[in-house]
C-alpha cells in the first residue's frame, strides 16, 4: 500500500495537475482569508465556509485520473498482477488523495496562526472546522475514486463525480422545494452541506462523523467491487 501512496503523491507533483489544484486552493483560500482578515474577523469558519464551492470543483479534478488513467494506459495490469490486494490498491490511492488535500488544511493552520498573532481565534471551533472539512473532502474523494474506477476517461470521471457530489450537496435546496415531509427528511439526512455546517459551529457531532466515515467506507468498498468485478466480466 505504501508503494501506491508514494507513487500517487509523487504523480501529483510530476504533472502540472497537482500544482494547478494547489494553486487554485491557495489562491481562493488566501483571498477569502484576506477578506475575512480585512473585515476584522479572526474566524476560519468564514474562510473555510466560502471554500466549500471551490473544493467541489477541485476534488473531482484531484481524483479523476486515479483509476481511469491506469486503465487507459493498461498500468492496472501491473497493479493487479502484483502481490498486493485490490483493497490495498484502492486504499493507497484514496489515502494519497486525502494526503494531498491535507496540504491545504496545513495552510489553513498557518492562516489561523496569523489570526493568533492579532486576535484570539477559537481553536476549538477551528478544530471542528478542520475535522469537518477533512471528513467532507474525504467523502467527496471517495466518491471521486469510485467514479474514476468506472471509466477510462478522465473527463468523464471528473464530470461524473462533480455531478454526483453537486447533487449530494444541493439536496437540502431540493428538499426545501418539495412539500412532502418524508422527502425533506431524507434529503436533509443525506445532505452533505447541512452535516458539514454543524462542524463549523465547533460542535463535534458523532452522527455526522459516522455519516461521513460511512460514505467513505461505502464508496471505497464499491470501488473494490467494481475493480474486482471487471476481472470476472
Amino acid at each position: 500500500m505504501s508503494a501506491v501512496i508514494k507513487r500517487e503523491l509523487k504523480a501529483y507533483f510530476t504533472s502540472p495537475l497537482g500544482y494547478v489544484i494547489l494553486a487554485v486552493l491557495l489562491l481562493f483560500g488566501g483571498m477569502n482569508f484576506s477578506l475575512v482578515f480585512a473585515n476584522g474577523y479572526a474566524d476560519m469558519t468564514y474562510v473555510l465556509g466560502s471554500m466549500v464551492t471551490i473544493i467541489f470543483f477541485v476534488i473531482p479534478i484531484l481524483t479523476m485520473r486515479l483509476f481511469s488513467e491506469e486503465k487507459k494506459q493498461k498500468t492496472d495490469q501491473l497493479l493487479l498482477t502484483s502481490p498486493i490486494s485490490i483493497r490495498a490498491m484502492v486504499m493507497g490511492k484514496f489515502i494519497a488523495a486525502v494526503t494531498f488535500f491535507s496540504i491545504f488544511i496545513g495552510v489553513c493552520v498557518i492562516f489561523n496562526l496569523v489570526f493568533q498573532v492579532f486576535a484570539q481565534p477559537d481553536w476549538i471551533v477551528f478544530l471542528g472546522n478542520v475535522v469537518g472539512m477533512l471528513l467532507f473532502a474525504s467523502s467527496l474523494i471517495a466518491i471521486g475514486v469510485f467514479i474514476s474506477a468506472l471509466t477510462e476517461s478522465q473527463v468523464v470521471a471528473a464530470v461524473g463525480s462533480f455531478a454526483v457530489s453537486f447533487f449530494l450537496m444541493s439536496l437540502n435546496n431540493i428538499a426545501s422545494l418539495v412539500n412532502l415531509d418524508f422527502v425533506t427528511k431524507i434529503c436533509d439526512w443525506i445532505s452533505f452541506s447541512a452535516r458539514y455546517q454543524t462542524f463549523t459551529q465547533g460542535t463535534f457531532d458523532i452522527t455526522n462523523t459516522v455519516f461521513f466515515l460511512s460514505v467513505i467506507a461505502i464508496f471505497l468498498f464499491l470501488t473494490i467491487r467494481v475493480i474486482d468485478r471487471k476481472r470476472w466480466a
Partner: peptide, 11 residues
C-alpha cells in the same frame, strides 16, 4: 510482461 508494457510515462 503484458502485450502493452504497463509503464507509468510520468516516471
Amino acid at each position: 510482461l503484458p502485450e502493452l508494457p504497463p509503464l507509468y510515462l510520468d516516471m
